[in-house]
Write a protein that binds this DNA or RNA. Structure first.
Length: 575
RNA sequence: UGCCUCAUGGUGUAACGGUAGCACAGCAGAUUCUGAAUCUGCUUGUCUAGGUUCAAAUCCUAGUGAGGCAACCA
């Protein structure tokens, strides 16, 4: 459990969202069992994304806040889609996010108990084996506006159902030929009450239980049982499960009748489910299916591509767990299906990195500067503070020499007076170093500036003029002789439109941003070469960058741009 | 269409019958050796129509709009 972000959100009061209130009210009223128990139940069929992070923060966060515990449970009841690779990735992501579970369990741990309960439901007339095909069942089930018709098997003798069910388990039938149904209400306006399937035959090896089973429970049957066995008090999930809640309660009621609910502190623990809206973010997609498609069709380079909203992708991009937790607190929790602006996530990571990241100088689009009054072979080292937000971060030395690289768009030949960087006849400060005045430019045949020449003020060492004259512009630079070329990947939003799914007539793939990654060779100050994989920096005046964990080599880091610095320069002035 | 759910500035969220607040975004200014950060200020909101009440974002009714459900997926 995290301990350092009790007031995450950077704001004043923690939001009194409806789940927090619900749990608080119950705790105040004397929660049966005496302890809040939640669970995070991912299906191990994909990687966790920022939407899951919201759920993780809620599930683990509510437990922590109320002095309870949260279990991590792999909801692995459909072996056709699940694998252990995903289990490992999910665990790693949750730990990275900063949470620790009380118990780590698998739904498949409970298969035997679930089966036993199913037999009991059959004996008591609450379930029956049905031999209708899926196609036939469509007709029997009916439509929402009209009641369904009972399956011909509905009144099958329990003994007969039981015998059949055992043969199903023994593997006597082919896939999808028989299933076990709850006997509830074929006329219910809630489709989920019209004799829902409890077990289906599926001859697929399970990644954990192997071929021990050819019969697997459905979510609606399995989930409440899992919760009840673990003594979960608050089962929190997303909105689409709202209509499943009566069925969830039905299963819990049956368990109660059978005396299967656990007791804690002498009291029966009855799990209850509540639902909240899932996270939706602009300029990306969140569904596992679509993320899988992006990965499989190679629009991105794997589940941890830094352009993806997966936790692994965000991590590689340079996002911190603190920033993501802060974000999850700030977005709040409600039942309104909203769309959160990517700008908020970016704000959160900037806010965190501004405090955490050391500053470095690097030039992404270099143009040569010659300091005419500085000796050919001379060099000077200037002191540069590592992080002005962190007094403990000390400083480092950066080399200065006659030839420098500066950012191409920090120079303008014919600037307006709103441009206060370098131009002919203008003086700027070279960050940490000195004041420099441009006196001439050299162009190639095409008229492109290839060299900027000028002089520095020898009295301005460190960047302060002795006469106290004001210099409006400060630009970053690196010494050409000392600079090291370094690969930098400039990431941008994955899609060109805020909601790539809005237009249902158009494939969302066509909205992919062709410039979502641009790779450049930057010129970096020497200190950057020692960056270790995963280390984050602010490249001054540019943005936050993270040494890539896949491509970086010792002494040869590759940087991913996490996010640019906020830029209030008006468009007309931009280079 | 049947059932369920939701609706507060551009975005997200709070206000629990009693002054509509906060954050992000945007805009303006101060400050600044990062056009960053920081600080100050500003613009913009209760879906509609009725009703209950001294008083309604809040309670009731109807409407409108959005989402979910009709897998042997979760």
């Amino acid at each position: 459990m995290i301990t350092d972000t009790d007031n995450a959100g950077g704001g004043s009061d923690t939001s009194r969202h409806f789940l927090r209130q619900w749990i608080a009210d119950e705790v105040a009223a004397g929660l049966p069992g005496g302890q809040v128990v939640t669970r995070f139940p991912p299906e191990p069929n994909g990687w966790l994304h920022i939407g899951h992070a919201k759920a993780v923060c809620i599930d683990f966060g509510m437990a922590r806040e109320f002095g309870g515990v949260c279990n991590l449970r792999m909801d692995d009841t459909n072996p056709s889609k699940e694998s252990d690779d995903y289990v490992q990735a999910i665990q790693a992501d949750i730990r990275w996010l900063g949470f620790e579970w009380d118990r780590f369990v698998y739904a498949s741990d409970y298969f035997e108990s679930m089966y036993a309960m199913a037999e009991e439901l059959i004996r008591r007339g609450h379930a029956y084996v049905c031999d209708l095909t899926q196609e036939q069942w469509k007709a029997y089930r009916g439509v929402p506006t009209q009641p369904g018709t009972p399956s011909p098997c509905r009144d099958r003798n329990p003994d007969e159902s039981l015998a059949l069910f055992r043969r199903m388990r023994a593997g006597a039938f082919a896939d999808a030929t028989l299933c076990l149904r709850a006997k509830i209400d074929m006329a219910s306006p809630n489709i989920h009450f019209r004799d829902p399937v409890l077990y289906r035959i599926m001859r697929v090896a399970h990644y954990r239980s192997g071929d021990a089973w050819c019969l697997y429970p459905m979510y609606d049957f399995a989930h409440p049982i899992e919760d009840a066995i673990e003594g979960v008090t608050h089962s929190l999930c997303t909105l689409e499960f709202e209509v499943h809640r009566p069925l969830y309660d039905w299963v819990i009621d049956r368990m109660d009748e059978l005396g299967l609910l656990i007791t804690r502190c002498g009291q029966t623990v009855r799990p209850r489910q509540r639902e909240f809206a899932r996270l939706s973010l602009t300029y990306t997609v969140m569904s596992k299916r679509k993320l899988l498609q992006l990965v499989q069709e190679k629009h991105v380079d794997g589940w941890d591509d830094p352009r993806l909203p997966t936790l692994a992708g965000l991590r590689r991009r340079g996002y911190t767990p603190e920033a993501i937790r802060d974000f999850c607190e700030r977005i709040g929790v409600s039942k309104y299906e909203s769309e959160t602006e990517l700008a908020l996530l970016e704000y959160c990571v900037r806010d965190d990195l501004n405090r955490q990241a050391q500053r470095r100088l690097a030039v992404l689009d270099p143009v040569k500067v010659v300091v005419e009054n500085f000796p050919d072979d001379g060099e000077t080292w200037f002191d540069a503070i590592n992080n002005p937000e962190d007094p403990a971060s000390a400083s480092r030395l950066i080399p200065f020499s006659r030839e420098l690289w500066i950012e191409r768009d920090d120079f303008m030949e014919n600037p307006s007076n709103k441009f206060f960087r370098l131009a002919p006849g203008r003086e700027v400060r070279l960050r940490y170093a000195c004041l420099f005045t441009c006196t001439s430019v050299v162009k190639d045949d095409a008229g492109r500036v290839v060299e900027i020449r000028g002089t520095y003020d020898p009295q301005s060492g460190g960047g302060t003029a002795p006469d106290g004259r004001k210099v409006k512009g400060t630009i970053h630079w690196v010494s050409a002789r000392h600079a090291r070329p370094v690969e930098v990947r400039l990431y941008d939003r994955l899609f060109t439109v805020a909601d790539p799914l809005a237009d249902e007539t158009r494939d969302f793939i066509t909205w992919l941003n062709p410039d979502s990654i641009r790779t450049v060779t930057a010129q970096a100050e020497p200190a950057l070469m020692g960056a270790v994989a995963g280390e984050r920096f602010q490249f001054e005046r540019l943005g936050y960058f993270c040494a890539d964990t896949r491509s970086s080599q010792p002494g040869a880091p590759v940087f991913n741009r996490t996010v640019t610095l906020k830029d209030s320069r008006v468009n007309a002035v931009k280079g």
